[in-house]
């Protein structure tokens, strides 16, 4: 049933098949739920702004329900099932990217640094590098700082990401 709905969503069913499936969906509450879920996925892909905050929980649940394919199947249905699973999995990533992009400013850090420095008290000119990856020896300072900074206390090893990201 799931893969039939998925195929229907993709517009890959013949008209009579679609009608038959739609009337079955109306009769079966479980299929109706499935139909709604697929539409939710579609909606989210089209309108990331209106993503539900709790969507990851619903998806996690969905991923667990999603059966693993063990039995041999026809080529076509495998492909469709693959689509259905990857849609759920990639939506997890999408939800996070959406959450991030909602809050992301477009200005790169270096540009911001330039702006902020112009409002700084100092009038000297500073050269701003986008990254210190080229600068050997910077790791030592970075690591030494992270050892003693109070922010490390809350975030733990996650603060080491700055050293990792600098590569």
């Amino acid at each position: 049933m799931k893969e039939r709905i998925s195929t229907l969503m993709d517009g890959e069913l013949f008209e009579d098949e679609s009608e038959a499936l739609l009337s079955r969906i109306k009769l079966h509450p479980e299929a109706k739920h499935e139909w709604q879920t697929y539409h939710l996925i579609g909606d989210v892909l089209r309108q990331p702004d209106h993503i539900s905050r709790d969507i990851s929980a619903a998806l996690r649940e969905r991923l667990q329900i999603e059966p693993t394919i063990l039995a041999p199947q026809s080529r076509v249905s495998k492909k469709i099932r693959y689509f259905a699973m990857s849609a759920a999995a990639s939506l997890m990533a999408l939800a996070l990217v959406v959450w991030m992009s909602v809050q992301v400013g477009s200005e790169p850090a270096a540009q911001m640094a330039m702006q902020q420095q112009s409002s700084a008290v100092q009038t000297a000119s500073y050269s701003v590098s986008p990254s210190y990856a080229v600068n050997k020896g910077m790791d030592d300072y970075l690591m030494a700082h992270q050892e003693v900074s109070p922010s490390t206390d809350v975030a733990g090893a996650a603060t080491y990401i700055h050293t990792v990201a600098a590569r």
């Binding site: 420095q117 500073y126 701003v128 590098s129 210190y132 600068n135 020896g137 970075l142 700055h162």
Partner: peptide, 11 residues
């Protein structure tokens, strides 16, 4: 020291 003078940002 290997570090070159300048301003660098990482997040």
């Amino acid at each position: 020291p290997e570090v070159r003078p300048g301003l660098y940002s990482q997040g």
